[in-house]
Nucleic acid binder design. Structure first.
Length: 199
DNA sequence: AAACCATACAACCGCGAATTT
DNA sequence: AAAATTCGCGGTTGTATGGTT
């Protein structure tokens, strides 16, 4: 049993994807549709696990993926959202059209984390008791323990996040309500966040 | 030129949630 | 209802690349 698993693992290709593999995966997803990644992995003939196929598609091959550097607006939005939600990368990425959770996470870890830390350090020189915890918690996925409880820090998040989306097409921040009715109509987390200022 | 180091990003892993059987 | 399977998330690791010594 374990031996068989070992054997399976040893036949699975790992590491960076080659252009040929990308092409095969793209063709396979286009003809069979997204989902059931184990099946796609089998059908494609690629020696890649379903998980790996899914990740590659989601983060790289999917249409409408935006590549290249983050705009200042995107950076700013990530910082604000991270302050609110903590490491909820998929939620943050959901507010950035064309960006993936992995990309946002990487960008935060390599660029913004430092920036944010140095900012925080400056702030702590004048104010006591900073916190790594997000201002708000969604309560949707709390098992990892790095999310805030939502009780503390009911600070000025309204002021700070009066814009939670940026529209590249019109080149200006979207007001909360228009975005709420647009992309995140059914996201309870954002529905709550967006409604809160009305209280 | 080469060894070393730092940075950025792609990919993997483990886990829990959701769904299917 | 329980077991098995699939999916999605966040943390972590691996690798390519560029800069410095």
């Amino acid at each position: 049993m374990e031996r068989k698993e070992e054997e399976m693992k040893s036949h699975v290709r790992r590491g960076l994807w080659k252009p040929e593999e990308d092409m095969i995966l793209r063709n396979c997803v286009e003809s069979h549709g997204e989902g059931n990644w184990a099946d796609i992995s089998r059908r494609s003939g690629l020696k890649r696990g379903g998980k790996s196929c899914r990740l590659r598609w989601k983060n790289y091959l999917r249409p409408n993926i935006k590549r290249g550097g983050m705009s200042p607006q995107e950076q700013d939005l990530i910082i604000r959202m991270h302050k609110l939600l903590g490491n909820r990368w998929s939620l943050i990425a959901g507010r950035l059209p064309g960006r993936t959770d992995n990309e946002v996470k990487n960008y935060w870890n390599t660029h913004l984390n430092k920036k944010s830390n140095s900012r925080k350090q400056n702030a702590t020189e004048s104010v006591e008791a900073p916190t790594d915890k997000p201002v708000m918690s969604t309560g949707v996925r709390d098992s990892h323990g790095d999310q805030g409880e939502g009780e503390e820090g009911t600070t000025n998040w309204m002021e700070e996040t009066n814009c939670l989306a940026y529209d590249d097409h019109i080149g200006s921040p979207l007001p909360l309500i228009s975005h709420y009715t647009d992309t995140f109509l059914f996201d309870p987390c954002f529905a709550f966040m967006d409604c809160f200022p009305l209280l």
